[in-house]
Design a protein around this nucleic acid. Structure first.
Lengths: 122, 122
DNA sequence: CTTGCGCTTAACCTCTGGGTTAATTAACTA
DNA sequence: TAGTTAATTAACCCAGAGGTTAAGCGCAAG
């Protein structure tokens, strides 16, 4: 088995699964509830498999209620991913800063007449 | 080609590629720089492929300097992922709130004698 | 107690992701 | 010009992801 982060990113790397998470963010749902939007595109066993992936990644929890398997979103697992991404926040924020700065030089150019040589890459 | 989010999540769903991003967050690096930590585990063409995936996902930018291909982190692309995750922040925060609340009931139990029935799932 | 519903398992197929080696291109260097 | 370094391309292999159909299991309602 792969590391937890890899497992979570792969689980999220599928639009069907992301859609399922989005539905679960609007409340608990059974397997057939979750399957409904996809039954034109895929079979029930396919849905079961997707849910297994999400469950294995810790992104959802499946419980039992008679013949139903109510699923709930497990948002803590998403926090884990978000926390990993945090380490890069400073980079995209500084990119925006550079954009800001660049835009300032551009708007001033008319007045000051092109003094910066213009880094690329925003 | 798949949607941008799917492409980014799949690109991130590989420890080698995440490690490369981490290296790039410490500064621009050539392909062979990036390859160095992995040459015991994989060949250069494998590295090239990983970089292609990252580039296609928009996570890095490859430029040219003589025979070298300096790569730079493209943090804006990570922001896109982070933005998508934001929609779930309220859920993991409320989970933590519930954990807080639960811990409060636990610590009070000695005094008030078990009054809540205890939702599962934190 | 059997019928039907909700869901999973089994067995299978196909395609792609991640890896390989070998050959190739491009640019510098002696 | 020949040789070396940096990186890519080509051709290939294999395991696993994502899908299928068909069969099976657990539960509840007639």
């Amino acid at each position: 088995m792969q590391d937890a982060l890899t497992q979570k990113f792969s689980a999220l790397a599928d639009p069907t699964r992301r859609a399922m998470l989005e539905q679960l963010s609007r409340g608990t749902a059974s397997v057939s509830d979750l399957a409904k939007p996809f039954l034109k595109e895929m079979s029930l066993p396919a849905v079961t498999k997707h849910l297994k992936v999400l469950e294995a990644a810790g992104l959802i929890t499946k419980s039992r209620d008679a013949q139903w398997r109510p699923c709930t979103l497990n948002a803590e697992a998403l926090k884990h991913v978000s926390d990993w991404m945090e380490q890069y926040r400073i980079f995209w924020e500084e990119s925006l800063d550079r954009l800001d700065a660049y835009l300032k030089t551009v708007t001033q150019k008319k007045a000051t007449k092109g003094k910066k040589n213009g880094r690329k890459q925003v």
